[in-house]
Design a binder for these strands. Structure first.
Length: 527
DNA sequence: CCCCCCCC
């Protein structure tokens, strides 16, 4: 193994020997030549563990030289503490007194048949020079994964894409077998192919979920040295001991992904303008999967607030938010016309909504407004019944509990929503002349529904389309006679518009358009 | 030296 036998750094001649060695780039290293030293950045380091018993076997690191080549170095566990201390991530060192071994074909991190061996004669000296690359990847494209899968011992896989969704840690197994934790993270490419990246045990726990939530979306994730396999018929990038991952790494691919995303935002603006929409050859995928649906169109509030709401009237967005405040200047409920959904000012009749002689059945609806944040911006959202389901009890139940039923007095039950976290699906409200855009709650997505949207197939409950609430067009069929009052914009009539008839449209936002326009489509897919 | 990467 070690070809450093002739060198004794303890001896008095260590200085002359140091001078005899010469600097080499990784490409110049020769396993039979002991007279080279290297200067390198420590890029990654890890302790290889056996699976599933997690017995540590070896300390390893990946080094980058000035020319951007990468090489792995291994050390016996006996030396682990020393190298953990002497080799700090991202720091640059002169390293000499190493040996060579043939790279193990199992779990190769690099396309490199040579691995360095570090041991007790390895000398490490920090350098000030910082002119070294920060990253080294060899990304596989989505359509290359299948080919890699077939190989017996391929190089571990690097992959990059947008974070599509981040699942919570799940625990499996028990004392009678193996017990472990895992966290799945969906990684989406520009063609909307999603691959699962799985972190295990400590790596699952240590995923910086809070940091991720605070970041402007979309977030690019680069993952390295994953074991590629299939699970449940789906491709899976399974983290290994050697796996590292990076949010928005400063590399070309990140810039490409983010640029592609900006283009998508522009694209949907074109579509909504009724102008000829640039067509991207991307197939429309419906997101039946709850986890995917609740992360669909997960655009940062800070981004949404900069977009012209007029271009996004039929798009459903989702976001994980915290409710900062309930707007106490806004009435928290109103009397809703059971035909048009508009506000019934006290004592007024909607003679235009009901056949003369029939008994109207006005209902009450929530209408409270809240301020929510995702860390990138604060947005105001109005919440109507029944889209408030899952957030707060039924309006009638709550009204029975409150002493003062004035709609100006916000009950404690609503105020209690402040400082709670939720996943909301929402849309832009019809823009008003001035002020920041506001939103309308579409769906509370904190928890997977036990029954699929009952409201979708709800009874004959007519639609609600008040000034603010166009959302109801999603949850109930359009009215037989969509009459427009000053409270009731004409959007109900216009929702029959479907931009383009091509089935190759940009998935990212069109699935929501489809659903809203055609509730039947959604109904079918849930059956 | 060999094995071997956790979930249906």
């Amino acid at each position: 193994m070690a070809l450093t036998g002739n060198v004794d750094p303890q001896s008095q001649v260590s200085a002359p020997i140091l001078q005899q060695r010469s600097l080499a780039y990784f490409t110049d290293l020769n396993p039979a030549d002991n007279r080279k030293f290297i200067e390198a950045r420590v890029y990654r380091k890890w302790t290889t563990m056996k699976v599933p018993n997690l017995i540590p076997t070896c300390f390893s690191c990946i080094l980058l030289d000035k020319k951007g080549s990468a090489i792995q170095a291994n050390a016996d566990l006996k030396e682990k503490e020393r190298f953990q201390h002497d080799l700090q991530i991202n720091c640059v060192y002169r390293i000499q007194g190493f040996g060579f071994e043939k790279t193990d074909s199992w779990g190769k991190t690099l396309d490199n048949d040579m691995t360095l061996c570090f041991g007790k004669h390895t000398q490490i000296d920090p350098l000030k020079d910082n002119d070294y690359p920060y990253h080294y990847f060899s990304f596989a494209a989505y359509n290359e994964l299948g080919g890699r899968l077939e190989k017996k011992n391929p190089i571990l896989t690097d992959y990059i894409g947008y974070i599509h969704n981040v699942e919570k840690v799940k625990e499996y197994g028990g004392a009678t077998g193996n017990k472990f934790k895992l966290r799945n993270i969906g990684i989406r490419n520009v063609n909307n192919n999603v691959v699962t990246f799985t972190l295990w045990n400590e790596k699952a726990d240590n995923f910086e979920e809070d940091e991720y939530l605070k970041m402007t979306k979309p977030v690019v994730l680069a993952v390295s040295s994953c074991y590629l396999k299939t699970y449940g018929g789906q491709l899976q990038l399974s983290a290994t001991s050697a796996t590292s991952y990076y949010f928005n790494p400063p590399i070309e691919e990140t810039a490409e992904l983010l640029a592609a995303y900006r283009q998508i935002l522009q694209l949907i603006s074109y579509n909504q303008d009724n102008t000829a929409a640039p067509q991207l050859e991307v197939q429309t995928e419906r997101l039946i999967d709850w986890e995917q649906e609740r992360t669909r169109n997960r655009v940062a509030l800070g981004t949404l607030l900069q977009i012209d709401p007029n271009t996004q009237q039929r798009v459903l967005f989702t976001q994980e938010v915290m409710i900062l405040q309930i707007d106490n200047t806004h009435e928290w409920y109103y009397q809703k016309c059971d035909e048009c959904g508009g506000k019934l000012t006290y004592g007024f009749v909607h003679g235009h909504c009901h056949q003369y002689g029939t008994q109207p059945k006005p209902q009450k609806s929530y209408s409270f407004r809240l301020v929510m944040t995702d860390g990138t911006g604060n947005a105001t959202m109005t919440c109507f019944s029944p889209q408030t389901d899952g957030l707060i009890k039924d309006i009638n139940t709550l009204l029975e509990e409150v002493a003062d039923k004035s709609p100006e007095i916000i009950p404690a039950q609503i105020l209690a929503l402040e400082n709670t976290r939720h996943v909301f699906q929402f849309r832009f409200a019809k823009p008003v002349a001035k002020g920041a855009p506001t939103f309308i709650l579409q769906k509370v997505m904190d928890h997977m529904p036990s029954i699929l949207p009952a409201s979708t197939e709800g009874p004959s409950s007519p639609p609600v389309a008040s000034t603010y609430d166009q959302s109801a067009i999603h949850s109930s069929p359009p009215p037989a006679t969509p009459l427009a009052s000053q409270e009731t914009p004409t959007d109900v009539a216009t929702v029959t518009y479907l931009p383009g008839s091509s089935n190759v449209r940009k998935e990212l936002f069109t699935a929501s358009i489809e659903e809203e326009i055609n509730p039947e489509a959604k109904k079918q897919k849930t059956e």
